[in-house]
Design a protein around this nucleic acid. Structure first.
Lengths: 246, 246
DNA sequence: CGAGAACTTGACTACAATCAAAGGTAGTGG
DNA sequence: CCACTACCTTTGATTGTAGTCAAGTTCTCG
């Protein structure tokens, strides 16, 4: 539960998310300015990064690890509204709270910026605002794509959709059009259910069914082999070029 | 089906969406520059504004009327992913296509900008990019709020959620905390079903049920009176300050 | 006034939720 | 090293909500 702080981290030039995160378009001098206001925070698997009710005093990027964005109703029903992978941005400049719970699913390293100075930099450094707009538009597309999954797909299609997304976002598979893919499943059955709008029992049943039908193989409970990604995507109801989801 | 074009419309200073649209933060000189590249287009109720497969050569704001954003699967299942009300923005700078079908539900007037010059202005005029970022973040929040509705709410809660949103977004009710509200329902039962991830029969049944339970009254099939908005919002499963949805 | 669209209601069905129990797996401490 | 605990997962039996199929009614507008 202890949060480690490091006031200065590795050089931005060496950062693994340098050209995908909110700083992607920054020039050397802009990067130097960002470097002055940044700090790193580590979170352990299972730890809450932000509560929806909290006043957030920072924004930042996921450097490594896997986190989730969830909403909860008073009676406890929860819906996951986003997956956060390395380079994804957390927090909303110009707004106090977070609206969502942000939870680390694996150990997470975040590159944080104090909110006030970051907001000032957004004004003085258009490259940051431009990149953030681009990323936000991508997230909006992803959220809308997911609305189709939640509103119109069957349980089986939902699982197939999730696995298709995870397979295509896996760092080892990125940008290679491989049709035979293996990926780590960082989510429990319950977390999958919360993302898909299902119960964990239904998730378990449908995973078993996909396995039975040869669409996936379970290397372990948390590691999945997809022998034919195109076929899985067809099962998801996507046309072959697929849904681009966060 | 005929689209009317007017190369120059009313002055931006008199525009009803002047301080809510993408141009909200512009100074007089910036507005003058925008005015040079803008043109108006009218669409009739039922007309498609953009097809998802189309290459879009413009972006723009809804000036008046009501439009919808929908996605469709190959087998015909459709999911509405957004409602477009006056001041909402259509199109994505920096991307070719639209990804969604945009359809006029009522007659619609749009204030359009050719895409290329608008993209150039986004770079030269930070006020536009700033406002667009703000609007996009709001839409992202709305989309995520809606994910909770689609994923976790019952049919009755879904209808109550939709009516709560529409009641609070109705122009005549805006910014007054009235608890007794009447609003126009610009959507058919089928369109409501597509927004809520239900069938039109289920929508019809649940509307009847809400009426039977005294939560709403039907002035006509397309005009709804809500005697107690707080109670309706409770029925939607929202806490009293409610979900802020597009 | 008539035709077509939009809407309502009923009967039946099916998919996923719920309730319940048992099997696995990982981590802890004796 | 094994026993014990806690959590995660699977599977089965049953229920319930919303979907499907099918009339029939009410609007709208030409």
């Amino acid at each position: 539960m202890n949060v480690q702080l490091k006031s200065a981290g590795p050089n931005c030039g060496d950062c693994p998310i340098r050209h995908r995160a909110v700083c992607a378009r920054c020039e050397a001098d802009e990067l130097a300015a960002l470097e002055k206001i940044k700090y790193y925070r580590n979170f352990e698997a299972g730890q809450t990064i932000v509560w929806s009710s909290d006043r957030m005093d920072f924004v930042g990027s996921v450097v490594s690890g896997f986190a989730t964005l969830t909403q909860t109703m008073e009676d406890g029903r929860t819906q996951m509204v986003g997956l956060l992978l390395p380079s994804d941005f957390v927090g909303r400049p110009g707004r106090e709270g977070s609206a969502y719970d942000v939870t680390a699913t694996t150990d997470v390293v975040m590159c944080c910026f104090h909110k006030k100075p970051f907001e000032q930099m957004m004004i003085s450094t258009p490259h940051i605002a431009q990149r953030l707009l681009e990323m936000t538009l991508d997230e909006l597309d992803a959220a809308r794509e997911w609305m189709l999954v939640l509103g119109r797909k069957t349980a089986r299609e939902k699982i197939a959709s999730l696995f298709s997304i995870l397979a295509r976002r896996d760092p080892k598979e990125i940008a290679n059009g491989a049709n035979d893919v293996t990926f780590d499943l960082a989510l429990t059955r319950e977390a999958m259910a919360d993302y898909l709008g299902l119960t964990l029992e239904t998730v378990s049943r449908q995973v078993s069914a996909l396995k039975r039908d040869g669409l996936i193989e379970l290397i372990s409970k948390r590691r999945i082999h997809v022998p034919d990604l195109a076929r899985l995507m067809e099962e998801a109801g996507d046309d072959s070029d697929g849904g681009h989801i966060a």
